[in-house]
Nucleic acid binder design. Structure first.
Lengths: 208, 208, 208, 208
DNA sequence: CATGAATGAGACTTCATTCAT
DNA sequence: CATGAATGAAGTCTCATTCAT
């Protein structure tokens, strides 16, 4: 009896917190609207409507419009960083496979949410915050380590500047995803992925 | 004496207005301000002040803010297209040299005007117009032709999707130039250029 | 044991709700918050938090924010009116003593609740209601009667316009209390009280 | 000829600056609207409409709504201070006449602009700024000096605390003007002025 | 009675664009 | 052609109030 009472009490408590996670709904909606119109032309009222909440509700979960964008990227980079770490610590993969894994990772994330690619390509650098940038750099540095490891193992070309390589590949991938998100029928994603890996690998591999 | 006074008075007044092409001054100023603040946060009044003209004068030369950005890129792509054509028609260069020439072309243009790289990376896709896009595509297609020619001459890998390659390289180059424009001390431009060529070539070349 | 547990559980729950009069808690809290921030900048949520109740609970006791302020003053004027009546009906006091008693009355009330002086000085006239104003006027008229009585008894100067005198003294007292509530260390309340009585009675001139 | 040219040049310049002083129009309108609705409920759009300008024009002359109120009082206190100084330096007036002159000064200013009295009574203390407060205190201290001078000349009672006297009289005067501004028909201003001077000087008691 | 998440109306402020001079 | 003061439309954000639990 006592347990039952306590349980029903807990249930009562939980019912007060929203069932459908409104915060996630808003973030999802914001990504879509940001992708469609760009950060500046995205109206809070439209994000709210698209999320199925009232305009004011946005401000229960986010301090302002800027934080909305920042949180999108914080979440994104954190997720990417965690999954990259999982790849990095695997011992059953060689450096080439790890690099391919990293590219797959990026493609998988953005395949699940194409709008994110558009928002990243158009609005990230202009509107990022210190916190979001921190997460971004942590992720990028983990990526760099993967390359450095490959260089040390004499699999990747040591003459390539890692920082430049990273910016080049990131820009290329981001642009490809951006174009794909805007016009997915022009080329299938798996074709992009294969071509990309080929270009990246043949570029970095030591040619015998 | 009287005339002289009046003349010198007029001259003083005239010195506030530029001798040269006011339209060019405005475009130059717009590129700078767009680069600094982004298209949306760029205020017409600041572009005018930076150009040494009155706010209203902008509208004597440009229909509106959007056209200002559009004209920047129309000019840019047109110039790139012309110079690429000059390369393309040369008979003393092989495909590899032509590809390198294209990359050099892009680097040279943006080296002369780093702000342009920032504006392109951040604001082009969101705010371009049909006309600007037309010039852009004409330039890109000329670039594609150069690649196709190389494939036909069995210099470039025929398995690579040219469209994907083009988007990848363009995104990569643009991101590199953007990073460099924001932070030119991180890596010298000639190092970027060399690395880039190496990555692009080793990626696309048929390995013997 | 089971019952005991349930009881103690309920008690724990109940301890979060106040034992005492929730309506009074809210009014007390409202006075504090109104004094701190002014009526307009006072947030209902802050009044609720400060009172130890939920935001929505305010509306169980008060129709809206306006009524909160109105009730504060209704209570105040009613109390002042009752106590003034007690003075007025005393036969052991002459007119001068009754006037002093009225001033003491006002000082005593606001000494107990300095925030009230600030709220009165800043927000009463702008946000009062008909009901609160009615109570206010009833109190003021009782004060006027006291003065008229003194005039009839040839103790107070008959040339003084009673209405003007009342507005002048009320304004002066209210401002003094307001300044004191904001900065109680500048001058002790009893000094204010003595000076005030003196000025009201004798003015500023040295009497020959 | 030269002079003529220069003159006509100046005229051209002056014609560009507005003829009707828009800044003053806006301040005048703001005082009216602030008096009618109070600072918080005064809408910028209504102040603009009332001033005969567009909403956005307000912001050409004032940083924001707060500065609008601050400038009203800065102007007011500065004017009062200057005129009080003129009185203070006169040698043909004794201390009593100077005190009366100060009260006349205040009455004259607010008679010209009754709304100002309402705004002062209701909104000054809550919304003043450091700058406005500085001007206010400079004026009040000049008033205090006048009283101290009277005390030194054995005309005013030395037992009266000057600070308390100042707050009392200021509060009383302000309340009287406020009541009068709201309801000017209840009592004519000259009656208020005479009664006030009498009470301030002589108090309420019949002097034997 | 009590709660506090959700609502949405409304105001301040910005800034691209205009137009009288 | 040139000017820059003036315009006014439109979006972000706040907060009193409600209502499902």
């Amino acid at each position: 009896m006592l347990f039952l009472n306590i349980d029903s009490f807990k249930i009562t408590i939980n019912m007060r917190t929203r069932e459908g996670n409104k915060e996630k709904d808003i973030l999802k909606s914001a990504i879509e609207v940001f992708a469609q119109t760009g950060y500046h032309d995205a109206k809070i009222s439209r994000i709210a409507e698209n999320a199925g909440v009232a305009t004011g509700s946005i401000y229960l979960y986010f301090k302002n419009k800027e934080e909305l964008l920042a949180r999108i990227f914080e979440t994104l980079w954190e997720k990417l960083y965690c999954e990259l770490n999982a790849i990095q610590t695997r011992t059953d993969l060689n450096s080439i496979e790890k690099l391919e894994g990293l590219l797959d990772l990026i493609f998988d994330i953005f395949t699940d949410n194409p709008a994110l690619a558009t928002v990243f390509a158009n609005d990230y650098y202009r509107h990022t915050t210190k916190v979001a940038d921190h997460y971004f750099n942590v992720f990028l540095q983990a990526g760099e380590e993967l390359i450095v490891e490959g260089i040390n193992k004499k699999v990747f070309n040591p003459n390539i500047n890692v920082l430049i390589f990273r910016h080049f590949v990131l820009g290329g991938v981001s642009n490809l995803l951006h174009q794909w998100a805007d016009n997915p029928k022009d080329f299938p994603l798996n074709v992009i992925r294969q071509n990309l890996k080929f270009i990246v690998k043949r570029g970095i591999l030591i040619v015998q």
